[in-house]
């Protein structure tokens, strides 16, 4: 029960929502405006990608303070570049399609082309990536909590349960077994869901 409560109050789903808020506008603005804006966003994305996920999340949690909200922000920021890259690539591919050219030819404004014509056509791979990233975010949150930088006791989190359990590994090994199995199961489930969604939504990728 505690493990289930830990997940319900866990951060990954909320961190994923935060990413969704930030990723698309950045990538779309980068492409919509083009030129130096695109270059600047691309270099910023490269720089964020250069900071390994966990190290960046640890650093953000360290400077912002170790708690649940900051863990969400840290995981969201650390995972954001993948979405910017993916959206950028997808928009680049879609914006050369004939239907976009046709929408432009009939005089649609730039914003309308981006939101009504391009965005719906780039959503599928983003949904797949979001599902797979939820799996990564669960592991990232558990890692931060395991290190004491995420959810703080007495509030439950699978990572902090494991951190506590490792001190009693020889006396009470089951304390470490169950939270870990719970993490594996949910991560595996999201990975399989992501693979399944990819098969359905993005058959070219398989």
């Amino acid at each position: 029960m505690t493990a289930v409560a830990g997940f319900i109050d866990d951060v990954p789903v909320r961190a994923s929502a935060w990413r969704r808020l930030t990723r698309r506008p950045a990538a779309m603005v980068g492409l919509g405006v083009g030129g130096w804006t695109d270059s600047l966003i691309s270099r910023f994305t490269d720089a964020l990608l250069a900071c390994p996920f966990l190290i960046l999340a640890i650093a953000l949690a360290a400077f912002l303070g170790p708690n649940l909200t900051n863990a969400m922000i840290a995981i969201g920021v650390a995972a954001m570049p993948i979405f910017i890259r993916l959206t950028r690539g997808q928009v680049l591919a879609v914006k050369t399609e004939d239907f976009v050219e046709a929408a432009r030819a009939v005089g649609n404004p730039h914003r309308r082309i981006l939101l009504r014509h391009i965005l719906p056509n780039v959503v599928s791979p983003l949904i797949v990536q979001a599902t797979l990233t939820i799996a990564t975010a669960i592991i990232a949150e558990a890692s931060l909590s395991f290190l004491g930088l995420g959810q703080q006791p007495p509030d439950p989190s699978w990572g902090s349960m494991l951190n506590f359990a490792k001190n009693f590994i020889s006396q009470a090994p089951w304390m470490a077994v169950w939270p870990g199995l719970a993490i594996c199961t949910i991560v595996l489930a999201f990975n399989l869901l992501g693979d399944g969604l990819r098969d359905v939504l993005d058959p070219r990728a398989t």
């Binding site: 077994v177 870990g180 990975n191």
Partner: peptide, 12 residues
Amino acid sequence: GLSIPHFWLGIM
């Protein structure tokens, strides 16, 4: 390998 957290594998 992609689904098992390293630290849990280590503990196990």
